[in-house]
Simulated scan of single mutants.
Amino acid sequence: MTEIRTPRLILRRWHDDDLAPMAEINADHEVMRWTGDGSAIGLDETAEEIERWEEEWDDEGFGVFAVELLASGELAGAVGLTVLDSLPGTHSAVRICWRLGSPFWGQGYASEAAHATLEFALQDRGLERVISVSRAGDDASGNVIRKLGMELEREATDPEHGHALNIHAIDLTEYEG
């Protein structure tokens, strides 16, 4: 079982009892406003999302982690890696992504978890390159991306929802761990 410990977090595979707290995070319109069409999602969609993340772990050897607070055991959200096929020009690129519940914003948890995940991708899993895709105007994600040392590669348009997107990337030769 893959698990990463940071000073304040445990990044781990998903447990059955993670469904309800992750569904609560996904039901928050403020959390979801930068994701997909910006709509909150319910319990069934959250279960399907976690199932897809776990299948990717089995298929790819990486996936999206559950983010647990080390001090309390509370589920703070998700961070991880996923193969991106839905955006033109990014076929089979590995994307880093994160989603934390709003009570956990502004405390550095997203950056801490994303940094550990990027290190896992480039050093442990041997990936040569990782991208991030964020909606234009999502300044909080932009801050995390900047802290990861990722550089703007290009702008794009979400083919499904029409939003302006920023695609950032970093490769193994640029990574400073």
Score class of each variant (00 low, 15 high):
F62T: 02
W57D: 03
F65G: 00
G89R: 03
E30Q: 14
T35I: 15
G38T: 00
E49V: 01
A66F: 04
A71W: 00
V31G: 08
V79F: 10
D28G: 09
F65S: 01
E68N: 00
A23E: 01
L70E: 15
R33N: 03
L84V: 14
F65C: 07
G77F: 04
G36R: 09
A76H: 09
S86F: 09
R33C: 11
H15V: 08
E60W: 05
F62S: 08
V31N: 06
L84D: 10
H91T: 13
E55Y: 03
E30N: 08
V64E: 07
A20V: 14
G61H: 00
L84M: 14
L81H: 12
E74T: 14
G77T: 07
I50T: 04
F62L: 04
A71R: 14
D44K: 11
P88M: 03
F65Y: 05
E51M: 02
W53Y: 12
L70G: 08
H15E: 13
E30A: 12
G89Y: 06
E60G: 01
N26L: 02
S86T: 13
E68H: 02
G38C: 09
E60N: 11
E60C: 13
T35E: 00
H29Y: 08
E54D: 11
G73I: 09
E54F: 02
L84C: 11
E54H: 03
V67W: 04
E45T: 01
A23G: 09
A66P: 08
W57M: 09
I41H: 13
E24D: 14
D59Y: 08
D17N: 13
A40Y: 07
V31H: 10
S72D: 12
D18S: 01
L84S: 11
L87V: 15
L70I: 05
H29V: 15
E24S: 12
S72Y: 03
T82Y: 05
T82A: 13
G73K: 10
G61I: 01
A71P: 03
S86R: 15
L84H: 12
E24W: 08
W14R: 06
E51W: 11
R52D: 14
R52Y: 13
P88R: 03
P88D: 01
A66Y: 01
H15R: 15
A27I: 06
D18M: 00
G36Y: 00
E30P: 01
H15S: 04
L87W: 09
E68L: 01
L70H: 09
D28E: 06
G42A: 10
G61Q: 03
R52M: 13
G89P: 02
E24I: 02
I25D: 01
G42S: 05
D59H: 13
D28W: 00
R52F: 14
A20C: 05
E48G: 15
G36N: 01
V67M: 00
S86Q: 11
L81E: 13
I41R: 15
M22D: 10
E74R: 05
G80R: 02
G80A: 06
I41G: 08
M22W: 03
L75Y: 03
R33P: 05
H29N: 06
I41W: 14
L75C: 09
E48M: 10
N26W: 00
A78C: 14
E56K: 07
A20H: 08
G36H: 02
E54Q: 15
V67F: 10
G77N: 07
T90M: 05
E68M: 03
A78Y: 03
D18H: 04
T46G: 01
L69W: 06
D44C: 00
V64I: 02
A20W: 02
F62P: 09
D44M: 11
D28I: 05
D16R: 00
